[in-house]
């Protein structure tokens, strides 16, 4: 099979006919609607621009949502934290609220790309790109976040567990809808979270494996845990078998080690020439599930024996 022309001949420029900058969410949704799905939302642009340059993405109209009002908040709402659709990774990583009440997310946001990327790339964009190892998506999945999606027809709320549909595919229609906010429960005093990442270099990296854990302690026991992994499936992956395994068990190294073993039965990383083999990443799932649980429990005030 001959290699595609676009893989051998690269462009410096984009080819987009229109660039629209709506002043309100309503206007933005109308713009999208009026183009019948042929327009595309651009926020920070760090995913969209390279895809346009490499001609992977073929759209003629961009709708820039980065100036919509009231999208850049990071706020506590009762027991919840609500993050606006325009919040960047840099803002989330630096937020005391997130650092304190969702540290896994702060850590993940602090590892995305580079400082330059984090300064523009939004958490909403990270979710909408639908990549299995995205550094904001995986912790948000462990935090049981839900997202609000707006379209010309109205709003809907979708839990992240139903949001990711396939590689690069989500429940959001990028030609018609806008992700306006992200909501999840702040960590309680007996809860902790952790985010671990394995890569070949320490910045601007391509993750081999990422793991986010939210754990609830009950004295020396694990009341419950949420474990999210990537890339071990086409989408950010909730490791339910290991979660069920640890629930109600004592927080011992043996439990956590067995949780790691359990996890390898359900997740299925593919062989990747650039990220690593299935066998290796399966081994790493064991280590990361154990380490992730250990760190999250420690944050919850529970030392693993």
């Amino acid at each position: 099979m001959a290699l595609a022309f676009e893989k051998l001949h690269w462009h410096s420029k984009l080819e987009v006919a229109e660039y629209l900058v709506p002043a309100s969410l309503t206007e933005a949704l109308d713009m999208l609607a009026s183009h019948g799905g042929k327009a595309r939302v651009i926020a920070g642009g760090t995913d969209v621009i390279p895809e346009l340059r490499s001609r992977k993405l073929d759209v003629s109209v961009l709708v820039d949502v980065s100036r919509l009002p009231d999208m850049d908040g990071i706020e506590a709402d009762g027991d919840d934290i609500v993050i606006g659709g325009g919040v960047t990774h840099a803002a989330a990583a630096a937020s005391p609220l997130i650092q304190d009440k969702a540290s896994a997310l702060a850590t993940g946001c602090g590892w995305v790309g580079s400082p330059q990327i984090r300064n523009v790339a939004t958490l909403a964009g990270n979710l909408v790109s639908g990549q299995p190892a995205a550094d904001a998506s995986v912790p948000l999945l462990a935090l049981d976040a839900e997202v609000t999606i707006a379209s010309a027809k109205g709003e809907r709320v979708v839990p992240l567990s139903e949001f990711f549909l396939g590689l690069g595919q989500t429940a959001l229609d990028p030609g018609r809808e806008i992700l306006t906010s992200i909501r999840f429960q702040a960590l309680a005093d007996n809860q902790g979270s952790a985010y671990l990442r394995l890569a070949k270099r320490k910045a601007l990296n391509l993750p081999i494996l990422v793991c986010a854990v939210k754990a609830t302690a009950d004295g020396g026991n694990i009341a419950s845990a949420a474990i999210a992994l990537g890339p071990v499936a086409p989408v950010p992956f909730r490791e339910r078998a290991a979660e069920e395994f640890v629930a109600g068990k004592p927080a011992t190294m043996e439990t956590l080690t067995q949780a790691g073993e359990t996890a390898t039965a359900t997740c299925n990383p593919r062989d990747s020439l650039l990220r690593g083999s299935c066998d290796y990443r399966t081994e790493m799932v064991k280590v990361f599930v154990r380490r992730g649980l250990t760190a999250a429990l420690a944050q919850a005030g529970c030392t693993v024996k």
Binding site: Y19, G45, I49, P50, D64, Q116, I117, N119, V120
Partner: peptide, 8 residues
């Protein structure tokens, strides 16, 4: 700081 190659 931002990457001007990614900024419309």
């Amino acid at each position: 700081p931002m990457n001007s190659c990614l900024l419309p």
